[in-house]
């Protein structure tokens, strides 16, 4: 793989990451966001795979495959399963901020992310690192989603976007963190998502819905 092709493909993957994140902000339907998450996971996994191929680093490629398996298949599947039993209106993301405003905020966040990642890009001018700002943007978008979404599962989605962003920075800037950390972190995220899924199920059973506004009993 030539340097140019590699750079193009990495840029493409980064673009897909950002685009999918913006679409997650845009779309209200949870099933659609689950599918977008799958796309995002695949794009994320593509980055280490590409790097692995280019450098002949098998371990990195394997990590990429694992990422794809986890983030493009397992997580969306978990969400989809949880969604299956729900009524249509329950699948709405129900944001606190309307879509137009959300998109404006997202645009701002992307600009902030570019500004924020300047020091990193200054240190490392490789093609992958130059795409790292996308990861920053995903992190910020993830935080924004977490703050503004009122459904249990939409918060899980937001959390995953955030995590994808961090992984993206890791892969783009440094070819991933040490394996033991990567494994541990993935396991943790998996467990967290599983726990959140179980809790969403219990919530559904107890409250008859997963609207987070219901969770206002414990207050000062």
């Amino acid at each position: 793989m030539s340097a140019h092709t590699y750079a193009t493909l990495v840029d493409l993957a980064a673009g897909a990451l950002l685009l999918s994140a913006v679409l997650v902000v845009w779309r209200r339907d949870l099933q659609a966001t689950a599918r977008l998450l799958a796309v995002q996971g695949a794009a994320l996994g593509a980055i280490p795979i590409l790097s692995g191929i280019r450098r002949g680093d098998v371990q990195l490629a394997v990590v990429g495959v694992a990422v794809v398996a986890l983030r493009a298949v397992v997580f969306p599947k978990l969400i989809a399963v949880r969604l299956r039993g729900e009524l249509a209106h329950e699948r709405e993301g129900a944001p606190l901020v309307n879509t137009t405003a959300s998109l404006l905020v997202t645009a701002t966040l992307v600009i902030v992310a570019y500004a924020l990642s300047r020091p990193l890009v200054r240190l490392d001018a490789s093609p992958a690192a130059r795409a790292a700002p996308v990861g920053y943007a995903l992190v910020l978008i993830g935080v924004f989603l977490l703050v503004t979404r009122r459904k249990a599962l939409s918060q899980v989605v937001a959390f995953l976007v955030l995590d994808n962003g961090i992984d993206a920075v890791a892969f783009l800037a440094t070819l991933g963190v040490p394996v033991v950390v990567e494994l541990g972190a993935s396991l943790d995220v998996l467990l967290a998502v599983v726990i959140l899924g179980v809790l969403a199920g219990r919530m559904h059973a107890k409250f008859g819905g997963t609207d987070l506004d219901e969770l206002r009993e414990l207050r000062e």
Partner: peptide, 22 residues
Amino acid sequence: WKYVVICSLGITLAFFGVVILY
């Protein structure tokens, strides 16, 4: 729910910090 979501957000930010530090 609050515990897991809020802590996860915070601790994920820490992971972001770890990655950048790395």
